[in-house]
């Protein structure tokens, strides 16, 4: 019997949880706020689903209903992607070491 591809995705998911666990524990506490803003930005990779929904077309005259939902999802995710990465960059730029005299 063949293995259901779902099992492979589930394996990726579980392994990623473990990777996430170890990587996040190694984040220095002083960078916890940038950690939240950057995780927020990367979770907006959900835009991938929004793009697929938006580009689906069966007839050429009208938008499908899924297109409309897709467009709004793109708008929201794009706000997050740009806002999240840029605000993270802005924060990280501020972290400076003591100047050696």
């Amino acid at each position: 019997m063949e293995i259901d591809p779902f099992i492979f995705r589930l394996s990726i998911f579980i392994l990623s949880i473990f990777i996430g666990y170890y990587v996040v524990w190694s984040v220095t506490p002083s960078l916890h706020t940038p950690l939240m803003s950057v995780t927020n930005a990367i979770s907006s990779v959900i835009i991938v689903g929004a793009i697929i929904a938006s580009l689906a077309s069966e007839n050429n005259s009208n938008f499908e209903i899924s297109n409309i939902f897709g467009f709004f999802a793109i708008l929201l995710a794009a706000i997050n992607i740009f806002g999240g990465f840029l605000v993270t960059q802005r924060m990280l730029q501020m972290y400076k070491k003591k100047k050696k005299k």
Partner: peptide, 21 residues
């Protein structure tokens, strides 16, 4: 749902990050 690895990996990372925090 979308069978998309990037989303699955990211979801797991963000999910565990928030849980640890």
């Amino acid at each position: 749902t979308l069978e998309n690895t990037a989303l699955i990996i990211t979801g797991a990372l963000v999910g565990s990050s928030g849980a640890i925090l």
